[in-house]
């Protein structure tokens, strides 16, 4: 009996926690520049990106032939991708009062220009970018990545 109550309380709590999480996604950045075709893949949908579009953790940014996109994140880092690119924003957490957090992105294909922000001023492990052949640790700089160069 007591166990059942406990179990149902735990379930209710879990349901609440999951709902609360789903209902309150944290905006991590904003699209500032865009040339079509550019899409944001989110929860199985593919949404056309527009200037002003919000960007969330776990979004995948996709540009097609001739497409490009520029995004400014909450920690003031800047990403801009050239045509035929695919970039997964795997993890982004930033505490603006402590000016620290962590940022993990994966460039699956294409070109990306990065200007790092407040997160990359912290520990060398705070901002990382993966490509198919490498992983980068970023310390306060601008840099360029091209994936799949022959």
């Amino acid at each position: 009996m007591r166990l059942a109550v406990l179990a149902s309380t735990a379930l209710a709590f879990l349901a609440f926690a999951v709902t609360a999480h789903a209902a309150d996604p944290v905006v991590i950045g904003q699209v500032k520049t865009v040339t079509a075709p550019t899409h944001i893949e989110r929860d199985g949908d593919s949404l056309a990106a527009a200037v002003g579009s919000a960007v969330y953790q776990s979004d995948v940014i996709v540009t097609g032939a001739g497409g490009s996109v520029g995004i400014t994140f909450k920690d003031n880092s800047l990403f801009s991708a050239g045509p035929d690119s695919r970039i997964a924003l795997e993890q982004f957490r930033f505490d603006s009062s402590k000016m620290s957090g962590n940022f993990l992105a994966s460039v699956e294909k294409g070109t990306l220009s990065v200007d790092s922000g407040d997160i990359a001023r912290g520990s060398p492990d705070a901002m990382k970018i993966k490509t198919p052949s490498a992983i980068l640790a970023v310390r306060g700089t601008a840099f360029l990545i091209k994936v799949g160069e022959n």
Partner: peptide, 18 residues
């Protein structure tokens, strides 16, 4: 598969590292 990485100056001319 060959990925290319290039460090460039940021908008203030500052260079950090990767």
């Amino acid at each position: 598969q060959r990925d290319l990485f290039v460090v460039v100056p940021d908008s203030d001319g500052h260079i950090g590292s990767i």
